[in-house]
Simulated assay, not measured.
Amino acid sequence: MADKTGIEWTEQTWNPTTGCDRLSPGCDNCYALTMAKRLKGMGAAKYQTDGNPKTSGPGFGVATHASAITEPLRWKKPRKVFVNSMSDLFHPGIHTADLHLIFGVMAATPQHTYQVLTKRHGRMRSLLNDPQFAHMAFHRAKMYGRPDTAARTWPLPNVWLGVSVEDQKWADIRIPALMQTPAAVRFLSCEPLLGPVRLHPGQGQLPDWVIIGGESGRGARPFDPQWAADLIADAHADGAAPFVKQLGSVWARDNGASDAKGGKPADWPEHLRVREYPGTP
């Protein structure tokens, strides 16, 4: 089964693939890499493929799990699903044919909302702008039981696409690629935020949703609450929904917060207690 999660902005995780490689500074303290090593030691079947020691690690090599791909077909209750909390769906090590299957499952289960987050913005943009990719996804959806007479709406109305943004450099690279990708909802995960980021409201660059968070855990880097305040202002200026997830371990330690990750809004300055979702007032 997919896993329940403590991630505040979703309800469940689904990992049809696992494993990844560090790509940019936001990956330096990757929680998933550390967790994969622990799961490998526990004998977890999904985490027995090792990755490149320079960019990945034990149990964190890219692997696709055929039995996990079809999990959502068995879920009756609608849910909000974070896709690949332990991988990157658009990693080059994941075959396009497997992505056809995964998007086919999402097309066949319109009752669920899928949230896909990537640092591989280029491949995401290329594939999802390709009519052949959409055609193959709908072909797989028919194989999974979606009626062929069902409306073929592309982009899929139940799939949200997002990119990770840790600093201004990557914001300026990844956000334009996201905005050039067809999606029902576009979002940013500015976590871990490692420096100030401005979104240039009014220039047609903003997505629908902006998640903001400091870094937590061992080796966490500092987070300035002003970075969150600026992102909230930029989001509101262009009608996007900001969601402050946490202020990070360094802030929590320095301010005597009740949660080690700085994740309890009651501890924060009042102007940062903002948790909005796209499409809500």
Rank of each mutant, 00 (worst) to 15 (best):
G239I: 12
I212T: 03
C190I: 05
E215P: 10
G214Q: 06
P192N: 12
A235I: 07
F187W: 14
P182Q: 11
K169E: 15
A220P: 05
V165Y: 02
G214R: 05
D167G: 14
D234R: 04
A171N: 03
G204S: 13
C190T: 12
G217P: 09
E166G: 10
P225F: 09
V165H: 01
V163L: 06
Q246D: 11
P192E: 12
L206N: 01
I175W: 00
L247E: 05
A237E: 14
P207V: 04
G213C: 09
D172C: 05
L199E: 02
V244H: 01
P176E: 08
P225T: 08
P192T: 11
A228W: 01
C190R: 00
L193S: 04
A235P: 04
Q226N: 14
P242D: 08
L247R: 04
V163H: 02
G195I: 07
A220R: 06
W227I: 03
K245Y: 08
A235C: 12
A241M: 09
S216L: 12
V210Y: 02
R186N: 05
P225R: 08
E166N: 15
H200A: 15
T181S: 10
F187A: 01
L188K: 00
T181H: 08
R186C: 02
R221V: 13
G219I: 12
L194D: 04
A177T: 05
S216C: 13
L231A: 04
R221I: 13
F223D: 02
D230T: 14
V185D: 01
I232G: 00
D172S: 12
G204P: 10
D172F: 01
Q246M: 12
A183Q: 06
D167P: 02
V244T: 03
E166C: 12
R221F: 13
L178D: 01
A228Y: 02
P207F: 05
P176N: 09
P225D: 09
K245D: 02
D224E: 15
D208R: 03
A177P: 00
A171D: 02
D230Q: 15
G214I: 09
A241V: 06
K169C: 08
Q180S: 15
A235D: 07
D234Q: 10
G162F: 05
V250H: 06
G214Y: 07
L188P: 00
V250D: 07
L188H: 02
V244G: 01
F243I: 08
G217H: 11
W227P: 01
L206I: 14
Q180P: 04
I173R: 09
D234T: 05
D172R: 14
D167Q: 15
D224H: 13
H200F: 11
A220N: 11
L193P: 01
F243C: 02
D234W: 04
P176I: 05
D224I: 07
P182F: 11
F223I: 10
L188C: 03
F243W: 11
P225V: 05
H200G: 02
A184M: 11
A241C: 11
W209R: 03
R218I: 14
R198Q: 13
E191C: 06
S249Y: 06
L194K: 04
W209D: 01
F243M: 09
